[in-house]
Amino acid sequence: MEIKREDILHLADLSNFSVSEKEAESLGEDLQNIISYISELDNLNTDGVEPTYQVFEMKNIWRDDEIIPQEASREDLLALTKEEKDDQIKVPKVL
């Protein structure tokens, strides 16, 4: 399939980053080549084959619902953010 400029902008939007004009052009070319390559998979017959998402077919492994003390403290974690106020992470205005 052909990747158009608007497809690149849409994918960038889904990816939550902005791209410059110049970047959109080079990304467009790269993505076109990559998608052409992965489309080779069309030649493989997968009729009646079940998909695999996890090699040991593990699914929803739950631990017991107990409070386990964590290595990192609240202070350790808050120290990682750029701005904090009253033990909360601060971000720019949402509305």
Partner: peptide, 11 residues
């Protein structure tokens, strides 16, 4: 793409 690849993985 994704589902097809997951089936290829089984093969």
């Amino acid at each position: 793409y994704f589902l097809k690849a997951a089936k290829a993985r089984t093969l």
